[in-house]
Write a protein that binds this DNA or RNA. Structure first.
Lengths: 215, 215, 215, 215
DNA sequence: AATGAATGAGTTTTCATTCAT
DNA sequence: AATGAATGAAAACTCATTCAT
């Protein structure tokens, strides 16, 4: 948590103000949902007047999009930092999943919640398409590299479905994680990795995938 | 022989009206989203006045819940009808997935859309928990039977996460299907089955699962 | 309380049905207030369908008026039965007041509550004027007889104001009684009699009026 | 010298708007009654939009309460200004009553009407209790001082009933005054004073109380 | 640069009342 | 005689958004 900047600091540079607003918006959107969140509450929470919010970040929809964008980027950066392109595919997938669940587990008010809300709201469809596209791209890239390393090639649409399945499964397990606050992010990542890598067939036969490292 | 259908469409019995209303509500909720859907439009679309909607199905939230319940039950019935408990696990999973995607593909305004919306809306959380529980139960049951057939046993929470992953993956691929109207439901089901059954590991190595039948 | 007539008794004579409805209406109006009382609840409580209420007792306003009329008449009859025109004025006033407070105390859901509600509602003004007129007439008659017995005469408008004051004071003390369920009706009547008969001047000097009898 | 009154009546400071709204609300509530009064009409009458009413004075119930409070306070102040604690009790009572009737007569849309409405409305019960308490306190205080001057003492509950009677009688005569627009407030006050001070017993015997002064 | 004042437009919900059977 | 079905009309309340200062 960032220390709250005292309200007495007036005339802050624009960039700082914008971050304050986004912090407040993420908080309120997460807590109340897109519709139930009121611009009033967001402005109040940011310690700023409503017209300023409009002046800096635009209307409600844009504001939400900006939140989603910022949180999504942070998530993507966390994943990117964890994955090293030269490792084998399973290690890459594992590190990516682990980073994903760690991030989601650590920011329970952030991207996962916003994304979940956005998915059901037609007016936010655009933002969702954009963000999901970025996630799909990450996964697709990983798969493509893995295939290339094996000297194989697969139609793009096949890869895309697979990426959808992986992303959807991860989101769902992230939901499970969000609903079980006592659960451990790394354990969830391990389970997810098992399903994703081995598939139900091998799992049912008792096969198991285990992380190589401890951390 | 049949009872005479009245020439004017007025004064229908309650049960009929309720179905008309639910039809309209599912349509409008799907098209507009929960919040943007107005009770006015739903009533109009059902060809009935608003007070009747309130009298028969209650306030907006209850109405949505009723929609979700009806559509979810239909989906579940479609899946249940397709799965035969005595078949091997992969065949069961396949038939279940195929039934799921066929249903979702055939009712693009139905369960999948409502469910997606409900997930982001705090006020609808209760309904989501109930419905998701039913889906998870179906998948968990399937996995349990498969394990039993192999003489193995696994902790309930492990199974649950696996079920979450499968359900989430399916939902996500269903989204993909919803976004690609030209796509074929059975092909999507096959892709999904591959990911779910074989896992990324074997898929990347070129293994492939194929349906046994043609239907 | 009348024993509830079982709903299975259908086709009751009109007069009986009307009393059932009035019973229900008095109850619901008293409990909820004129506006918050819904015709639905009244019909339900009477164990009858709404159209019947309309057919027998008319619209909501008429229904309320009918309630007020019935309860008011009962009150007036109770007072009339208690007052004997040949007694001295103070004895008459005392008996009238005592009957009034006893009645109000015994029917805490009846006349007093309805009347209080009606007073503030412009649409019910007519009914209030009528009922209050009847009360004022009773008091005015009492005062006139008392004056006649003393061989005096006073302008009608003077008497009228006096009657207003007495009626208003009684209503107010009745309110006090309604708000103090543990209070005793006869004690309240005695206090009221003291104020009304002796006036503040004598009361402050310690004079006291006491009922002659014990009953 | 005076601050320039803006040519357009827009953008007034909050305090001013609040008074305008209260003025309009008192008017509309008095004319139509609590329920029949619509927030729309009140806003229109105040020359402002509905949301401002909600923003400044809250929901309908709070708005009504605020009206009652303002008008009640004005009435109480008028009475307090008229009564001088060092005068004899009858003089105090007389001045109080006169101030009361003058005020009520001069503000036929104010306190008396609102109070009458509030009494019958269950949702406004709280406000009524508060306001009536203040009136009762004023009268009780007067009576206590009078008793103390005579060296006597009386139980609080006795005084309370007496106060109820006096307040109720005054309200009723105020009603009479409201229904007789040609009537004179001071004459009504004199009549009321006679009943209250002398009581029916002495009045019937021809005794009469008269104000000492002419004003 | 910053905000208090202001509103248009829309929504859910309720209720008295009446047909058609 | 009795009722389930049906509705017109209105009311309270909220919110995103913008002026004017």
């Amino acid at each position: 948590m960032l220390a709250r900047v005292p309200t007495s600091f007036k005339r802050l540079p624009r960039a700082v103000r914008e971050q304050q607003m986004l912090d407040a918006a993420v908080k309120v959107f997460s807590r109340r949902g897109y519709h139930a969140a009121s611009m009033d509450e967001i402005a109040d929470d940011a310690g700023i007047s409503k017209p300023m919010v409009y002046a800096y970040l635009g209307a409600k929809e844009e504001l939400f999009t900006a939140c989603l964008h910022r949180e999504g980027t942070r998530l993507m950066e966390a994943i990117a930092a964890a994955v090293e392109p030269d490792l084998p595919a399973d290690e890459q997938l594992w590190r990516g999943l682990r980073a994903f669940f760690r991030f989601v587990g650590a920011h329970r008010d952030g991207w996962a919640v916003l994304y979940r809300q956005a998915r059901g709201e037609p007016p936010l469809a655009g933002a969702v398409v954009t963000m999901r596209g970025r996630m799909i791209d990450v996964v697709t890239g990983l798969l493509e590299r893995a295939l290339a390393a094996r000297g194989r090639e697969v139609r793009a649409s096949e890869l895309e479905i697979m990426a959808y399945a992986l992303v959807g499964a991860s989101e769902s397990v992230a939901d499970w994680l969000a609903d079980h606050p006592e659960a451990d992010a790394d354990r969830a990542a391990t389970r997810m990795m098992n399903v994703a890598w081995l598939g139900a067939g091998q799992l049912l036969d008792g096969e198991l995938w285990r992380p190589a490292d401890a951390g």
